[in-house]
Design a protein around this nucleic acid. Structure first.
Lengths: 154, 154
DNA sequence: TTGGTTCTGCGAGCTGGTCGCATCTACCGT
DNA sequence: ACGGTAGATGCGACCAGCTCGCAGAACCAA
């Protein structure tokens, strides 16, 4: 389920203290573990993997099990509160908010870069025109070399 | 649209019978299992996962172990004889030949589509111009909906 | 043929993620 | 404010995909 623009804006404006309200607003039971996971997500801000997210949530509620974190990510994802992206070979990453567009991961330093929306849009349109394939980027990141690493090796 | 088997082999100039010669030409011991894996790759032609490749190779040499197939894929990959691509959530896929460009996987039916090289090239150039990020697509596939599945749901 | 290097089968192990189940808890109706 | 109950949790077992260590087998140059 995707967020509409209004919801996405609200999500982006949420502070750590709003964790419980966010859950209730999305018809989600506000249990201890879920609130702790939401707070950890909001506090961290950026893309984060499940293991690290578990560690952060356990700071507030030490008994949280990793399986619970995975299940929580699942319900948050169903509600469009978070999205997850597969960036390279490791674990997938979760972040607050709806569709974030197409990401690129630097092969050398692991930096995650958001590719410009217009460039992606043009690409999706051309791919559809040329191959009748409707790309839905966002779930899988592409690989490459970031500006900094390209500079180093040059 | 999956790749035609014969076509893929022809592109690289190798027929199934050349399996052993290809190995020797790349400074690779021509052992029974490796030859069987190469023959299976050449016969199949298109992208294939390790489990299926093992099954195909076992038709010729029934004792081949999946670990051996993984190791063989490793040496073939080091020599540039094959490349592997991560296409969606499942296992990674192997195919004969070097860089094949960017693939797309249908979210509904799993079909693997090769995106037109021209379109990909333009996209890579625009991404570099706009974000100073040098995309090296080929290792990770994108997700989307193929023409057939889009037709079904429409 | 021989000998040393390389490869193989096998099973154990690792990571990322899911599941079944007994127990517990949030929350709705009273 | 307080039960009843749908739904959530912790836990450990499990699964897929892949890697590794080892003892023995295969390869191939001499």
């Amino acid at each position: 389920m995707r967020l509409n623009e209004e919801e996405a804006a609200i999500v982006d404006g949420w502070a750590v203290e709003d964790a419980e309200a966010v859950l209730r607003a999305h018809d989600c039971r506000a249990t201890g573990p879920r609130v702790a996971v939401m707070r950890a997500l909001l506090r961290h801000g950026g893309p984060i993997d499940a293991a690290e997210l578990t560690r952060l949530a356990q700071v507030e509620e030490s008994t949280i099990h990793e399986a619970t974190v995975y299940r929580t990510i699942g319900v948050l994802s169903d509600r469009g509160i978070v999205t997850h992206v597969h960036a390279g070979h490791g674990p997938s990453l979760v972040r607050i908010g709806g569709d974030h567009g197409l990401l690129a991961v630097c092969r050398d330093c692991g930096a995650i870069v958001q590719l410009p929306a217009e460039v992606v849009k043009t690409f999706v349109e051309q791919a559809h025109a040329a191959a009748q394939f409707t790309l839905e980027p966002g779930h899988f990141a592409l690989e490459g070399v970031c500006a900094a690493c390209a500079g180093h090796s040059a």
